[in-house]
Simulated assay, not measured.
Amino acid sequence: MLYKIGGKRGRDRPQAKDPVIQALLKFLFKLMTILLLLMLVFKFVFGIYRVNDTAMVPNVNPGDLIFYYRLDKKYFVGDTVIYNFKGQTKLARIVALPGDKVDVDEHGLKVNGSRQYEPKIFKETQAFKDGVSFPLQLGTDEVFVLADNRDKAADSRLFGALKRSQISGKIFNLIRSRGI
């Protein structure tokens, strides 16, 4: 671009952008990129859920914040999982894996004919009158879940085994609410 000699400087010369505005725009772009990445990570890899029922009391209380991992599909007995049932999000502990035979009788929980030792459970495990019939043989893509607060929770004793596709993820962290 040619400049006139002797012309007015302000009109003929291109104006430089304000460095403060440039820095602000760069910062906003970086912030929006980070927020977008976090949203994608928490949509597809991790999840957050605030507990609103008493199904897992005393181990998980209402108001606690749960972080779960969506990609790990290898489940083991004792894993606490988050799952969807009839449009509701719930927590429970896996007590039996695919191919296992589950029985709940007047003495409690049996898996493959063996009584289960559950040190974190403080209430008796009993079958529901309107629930599934026992013994129950699990399919190749099913797990049996029980909540910790056995007399107040709706779990596999009521609706049967869960398909793996119903499980949203495995819980890896818990933050206590402390009455917040």
Rank of each mutant, 00 (worst) to 15 (best):
M56N: 10
I82E: 02
Q88V: 08
A92D: 05
G87Q: 11
V51Y: 01
I66E: 00
V57G: 04
E106S: 14
V81E: 03
N52T: 14
V77D: 04
D105N: 15
L91C: 08
T54S: 12
F76V: 06
Y68G: 05
P62S: 05
G99L: 12
L71H: 08
D64H: 05
L91S: 07
M56V: 10
R70N: 15
M56A: 07
T80W: 12
G99S: 13
Q88T: 05
L97E: 10
E106G: 11
P98G: 04
T80F: 14
D64C: 03
G87T: 08
Y69D: 03
K74S: 09
H107G: 12
N52R: 12
V81F: 09
G99I: 14
A55T: 15
R93S: 12
L97F: 10
N84D: 15
I66H: 00
I66G: 00
D79L: 05
F85P: 00
L91H: 06
G78T: 04
K101C: 03
G87H: 07
K101L: 07
I48Q: 09
A55P: 04
K86Q: 10
K86H: 08
I48S: 02
V60Q: 02
Y69A: 03
Y69V: 05
R93F: 08
Q88W: 02
F67H: 05
K90R: 13
P62C: 07
T80K: 14
K73N: 12
N61I: 03
K90P: 00
V102C: 13
R70F: 14
V95G: 02
Y75R: 00
L65K: 07
H107F: 15
I66M: 01
Q88H: 13
G99H: 06
Y75I: 03
P98I: 11
P62E: 01
H107N: 11
V95N: 02
P98Q: 04
V81K: 10
F85N: 01
I82L: 12
Y69K: 07
I94F: 12
P62W: 14
N84T: 11
Y75S: 02
D79T: 04
L97S: 05
N61R: 13
R50A: 10
I94P: 05
P98A: 03
